[in-house]
Design a protein around this nucleic acid. Structure first.
Lengths: 111, 111
DNA sequence: CGCGAATGATCCATAAATAGATCGCAATAG
DNA sequence: CTATTGCGATCTATTTATGGATCATTCGCG
């Protein structure tokens, strides 16, 4: 019983999505690799890779991150080692944060 | 006719995915917001938000980026304005890059 | 303690993503 | 110019993600 269709989309999220897709495309072309070749390396179809490069919000984040990694894009500007370290550190920190409690106070929404 | 099941996943991609999920969780807790509240703001179900925070590769990237944006996470370490500018610039650069040409599988240098 | 709420996990029906094939167009090489 | 090939788009069958409900557990607070 999923909802109709349309999903709210922030301008910022859409912009980031488009940007990531173009980064992947740029990196792929820099490597002089065809859509079909990269798609095969990533284990996805050519059509999906096209949608990823186009910034389609419906693509699975696993497929997107995978292709990004395969063309050498550093997510969060971090190398494998640092990323792993930060991830572990954050995991440890999270255990200490108490769960959220219901509040009437309105939350800060603007950035 | 989708493929069997398992999709190749780079260690780096998986690590980044897990990290992003935890970043979202940390940001949500810092705002003292419950899963249900953030899910509603993002227009997704509570279950999906849980999978996002758990770093599930199968989640749509649109849903993930949307929630990230809603808790104030700056993707690519860029604010809205800079991100838009970079995105535009990259788009312009891309039209100038020639399409990939098939490279000879291997240079035959043995005989 | 004990109550209430958040969280984590599971199940099911349905909407959506994906693979794979195919077409036309455009661009690049020869 | 012609030939070749990447690219973009569309269609269909199938797999998968998602929403919504529910249940048990854990946590936070008085």
């Amino acid at each position: 019983m999923a909802k109709p269709l349309t999903r709210a989309t922030t301008r910022y999220a859409a912009e980031a999505l488009s940007y990531l897709g173009r980064l992947i495309r740029e990196a792929r072309l820099a490597r002089k690799e065809t859509l079909a070749d990269l798609a095969e390396r990533a284990g996805i179809s050519r059509g999906l890779l096209q949608r990823i490069e186009a910034g389609d919000p419906g693509c699975s984040i696993g497929a997107v991150f995978e292709t990004a990694a395969l063309v050498g894009i550093r997510l969060f500007d971090l190398d494998q080692k640092t990323l792993a370290a930060n991830n572990e550190a954050l995991a440890g920190k999270l255990v200490l944060i108490p769960r959220a409690r219901p509040t009437k106070a309105k939350v800060n929404d603007d950035f």
